[in-house]
Amino acid sequence: MALNQFLILSAFLFCTGVYGVLARRNGVLVLMSVELMLNAVNINLVAFSAFVRDVGGQIFALFVITIAAAEVGVGLAIVLLIYRNLDSPDLDRVDQLKG
């Protein structure tokens, strides 16, 4: 199988995630877009790992999966906190400070 078919699928997922991050304003949906990007990373890593016959890429992917789970847990805790204070998980409503 061609290496590139995996890499291009991964590039597509990554760019879809980038679009989501830029175009969404709900915190949970932005987080979902980031998850798409992280999955693109994992597909890259596993495909390269198979291509060069090295287990390092798979280990890397395992770390990415684990840490992504931890990140989502923390992120939803923060979204929950904001929902309680503002009654909305929309990013646009969280806009008291202007950078």
Binding site: N42, A50, L62
Partner: peptide, 13 residues
Amino acid sequence: ASAQFIILLAEFV
């Protein structure tokens, strides 16, 4: 993605 990893024979991942 999980299915693609199986296709790539990375069973554990």
